[in-house]
Design a protein around this nucleic acid. Structure first.
Lengths: 148, 148
DNA sequence: TTGCTTGCAAATGATTTGCACTGCT
DNA sequence: AGCAGTGCAAATCATTTGCAAGCAA
C-alpha cells in the first residue's frame, strides 16, 4: 500500500522505529482520527471505520500511543478519547462538556503558552521532577446541553 | 458527634443542602483526605482509614462530589484520585508522574491564573459554551522515578 | 417509623489478554 | 519459515449496585 501523505510517511517512520508495521488496520484508525479531526471514543471510531475490530483497535491505539502517534485522553466519562499525537498535529487543549462528555480542541496564543511553560518548568524543578508535557482541560456546558 | 473545625461546619452545611448526613464514615473520609493533604486513590484511603469500607467509600465519595465537597481526578492510571473540593481548600493544579502515577499539587501566581481564565472564557464563549472550571495537569518524571 | 446509611456480595462495563490463524517479508 | 498482526471469546479489575440490616431524626 502506497504512502499517500506526508503525515503517513512520518507515522510510518515512527512505527518502524518501534518495530511496528503500518498495516491497513492501523491506517484505517489513523485515517479515522484524521477525518474526524478531534478526540474520539473507541465506539465512535468503530462506527466510523466499520472494518476495524474492537480488540485490534484497542491494541493498536495502545501501541501507537507507545510509538508517539496517538494520544489517549481520560476524563470522567465512560470511554477514553483518542486523537493523533500533538507532534503530528499542533499543541492544543480541550474543552470538555460536563454534561455530554464531548471534547473539542482549542489553542492558546503563543505568549500565554510560553508563560505557562516557564511556570511549569519552575514548579516541576522545585520538586526535583522533569516536566515532559502538559494538559489543560476547560470544563464547560456546551451549547447543546445548555439548550436542553 | 461535635463539629470540630470550621471546615467540618462548611462541609456539614453543604451536605445538609443535599439532604445528606455528615456521618462518621464521611467524617473519616474527609479526615483522611485532609490528613494526607493531596490526591489519594481509593486503596490508599482505605489503608489510611481502616474503618471505611470499599463500597461505602466509593458511594460517599461520589455523593460528596455531587455535594461539592470532594473532587475526583481521573488520569491514565488504574485508580482515580480523590481530594477535597477546591472551594474548601485552594485553587491548584497537578503534577503527575508518568511513571508511578503519583499526583502532587501546585499553584500558579494570580496574574497568570487570571490571564488563563480570561483566555478560557473567550475560547468557551466562541463555541457558545459556558465555562465552569478548569484543570491543568503537568506530566513529569518524578525524582524517585528518575533515580531508578 | 421513615428514610438515609452501611456492608456484603454480586453485577457491570471498559479495557486487556490468550490463543489459533492470517499474512507480510 | 518466522514473526508481527488480527479476530474471537474469555478474563480483568475498578467501580457500581441490589438488598437486608443499622441507625438517626
Amino acid at each position: 500500500m502506497a504512502l499517500t501523505t506526508e503525515l503517513d510517511r512520518v507515522i510510518a517512520d515512527r512505527l518502524e522505529q518501534h518495530d511496528m508495521r503500518y498495516t491497513s488496520g492501523r491506517r484505517a484508525i489513523v485515517a479515522a482520527l484524521r477525518a474526524i479531526g478531534g478526540p474520539v471514543t473507541l465506539p465512535e471510531l468503530l462506527t466510523f471505520s466499520g472494518e476495524v475490530t474492537q480488540s485490534s483497535a484497542y491494541r493498536n491505539l495502545a501501541l501507537m500511543q507507545e510509538a508517539g502517534v496517538v494520544r489517549r485522553l481520560v476524563h470522567g466519562a465512560d470511554h477514553a478519547h483518542f486523537e493523533l499525537a500533538e507532534e503530528l498535529t499542533e499543541h492544543h487543549h480541550h474543552l470538555i462538556c460536563e454534561t455530554c462528555g464531548t471534547v473539542e480542541d482549542f489553542t492558546l496564543d503563543d505568549e500565554l503558552e510560553r508563560a505557562l511553560d516557564d511556570a511549569f518548568v519552575r514548579v516541576a524543578q522545585a520538586t526535583g521532577a522533569t516536566p515532559t508535557s502538559h494538559l489543560i482541560d476547560v470544563f464547560v456546558v456546551c451549547s447543546n446541553c445548555t439548550a436542553s
